[in-house]
Design a protein around this nucleic acid. Structure first.
Lengths: 165, 165
DNA sequence: CCTACCGATCGGTAGG
DNA sequence: CCTACCGATCGGTAGG
């Protein structure tokens, strides 16, 4: 809190005229992002897109979030476990629903013959995880271009790195 | 340190008959793993394998490390930034060499026409990152089987999730 | 928004 | 390996 206060040019004690507690900041960060993801899933999941296109659309949001606000994404990804109850339980419940729907989409793709017969949970974690490095490496002055990243990551998830001959 | 002492059944102060400092533990963890990775790279990099087979071999080690000692992998991945000097500089230097050689292998695969024309740095980070979820999800009583994970992740990295028709 | 301060906790040492 | 303890730091409050 001293570091934070210093960044905005005041004493730590003065921060408490603007926020309730350190926990409240964590809470706000985690749920604002969780809501963004959940809203997107609520739109995409029941829609008419093919499973592959649904995955493309969700992956695109994940990359966008990491690129536009990577510190926020990093805090949610790494610090959600320090949420206090009952917020932690609520957060985990939201995440579980999101995970399950994403896995359902993968399973549907498998059933329709468009996605390989992989373990859908392993495929899901591998897919999502492949985006996470952005939270450490992507920042405003990054050497990387968002569209280049979006193209490359999406291509790798869909068809890998190997040239098929 | 109190938690750690409690786990091994002694007082925090007694720990210091066995270790020099908390920093020393972090140091030992980071460099023991960094050495494992560096030794493997020193063997694989100059070898006769094709770039694709070199990548397979390195990916296999990464998965093995995460599966066999995921807390160690998690500590190195997430806490190396709290290393003190001169250790931090040395660690980063080792990692930079490792990264560069891995990227060289990808570049060679591109030059030889076996790997798609992707940005090799983006491809490298995406590839490595896709393994990281194991540090949070894989543990002794995990629902997942190591060989199943190795097969699925390797396949996804190489040829993605889509069925080519 | 600041000064002054609190109780808890941290990594670690002295001395046995 | 323990008791006793230290100085630093943490999130946060009282009172203005």
């Amino acid at each position: 809190m001293r570091d934070l206060a210093n960044q905005v040019g005041m004493e730590a004690a003065s921060l408490y005229n603007h926020i309730r507690s350190k926990q409240q900041i964590l809470n706000d960060i985690c749920f604002s992002l969780a809501n963004t993801y959940t809203e997107k899933m609520n739109k995409v999941y029941p829609g008419d897109l093919s499973p592959i296109d649904k995955i493309k659309s969700l992956v695109s949001l994940h990359i966008q979030v990491h690129a536009m606000s990577s510190p926020i994404a990093a805090v949610m990804n790494d610090e959600w476990r320090y949420l206090t109850e009952p917020n932690k339980t609520e957060f985990v419940a939201m995440r579980d629903v999101y995970d399950q729907r994403f896995i359902d989409i993968i399973q549907k793709g498998i059933d329709e013959g468009d996605i390989k017969k992989l373990n859908p949970r392993i495929a899901y974690f591998t897919l999502l995880s492949s985006i996470r490095w952005l939270q450490h490496w992507f920042h405003a002055n990054s050497e990387f271009d968002v569209d280049d990243i979006k193209r490359t990551i999406t291509e790798m998830i869909l068809t890998g790195i190997v040239v098929i001959k």
